[in-house]
Amino acid sequence: MNPYLRLFALQVMFFLFPFTGAEVETFLRAENISAMVGSSVTLKCHLLRSDTTITQVSWNFCNQVYIAFQISDTEGIVLQDFSERVTLAKDYGITISQLNRNDSGNYCCIYNTFPHGSFTGKIFLQVLSKDPRTQDYYVWVGSGLGILLVVAAVGAGGFYYKKKTSKIFYSNSGPKTSGANPPNMASPALMTSSDETSEYFNVVLYHM
Rank of each mutant, 00 (worst) to 15 (best):
I33R: 00
D131M: 13
F14G: 03
L145Y: 06
T165L: 05
F169V: 07
S193I: 06
M13F: 12
V41Q: 07
N181C: 14
A68M: 00
S97L: 09
Y107W: 10
T74F: 04
G105E: 07
F114E: 06
F69G: 00
I123C: 01
T87D: 07
I123L: 02
D131C: 15
Y66D: 13
N100D: 14
I168E: 14
T192P: 00
S97N: 15
N2K: 13
I67N: 06
L205H: 01
F19C: 15
T192Q: 08
A153Q: 11
T42M: 01
S83Q: 14
V141N: 08
V57Q: 03
Y170M: 04
Q126C: 05
L47V: 06
H46R: 08
S39F: 06
P132N: 04
K176N: 06
S50D: 12
Q64R: 00
S72V: 06
F82I: 12
C109G: 09
N106V: 10
T197S: 01
H116W: 09
Q98C: 03
P3F: 03
P3S: 08
N106G: 03
P175A: 12
D103N: 15
M36N: 12
F159A: 15
S34K: 15
P183L: 07
S173E: 04
G93R: 02
T53W: 05
T20W: 10
T74Q: 05
P183Q: 07
H207D: 05
L125A: 02
I147P: 01
V37S: 00
L10E: 04
G76P: 02
S129D: 15
S72Q: 02
A186Y: 00
Y200D: 03
Q98T: 04
S173Q: 06
T177A: 14
W59C: 07
L16S: 14
V150E: 09
S83F: 11
F159Y: 15
Q70N: 03
V204P: 00
K167Q: 05
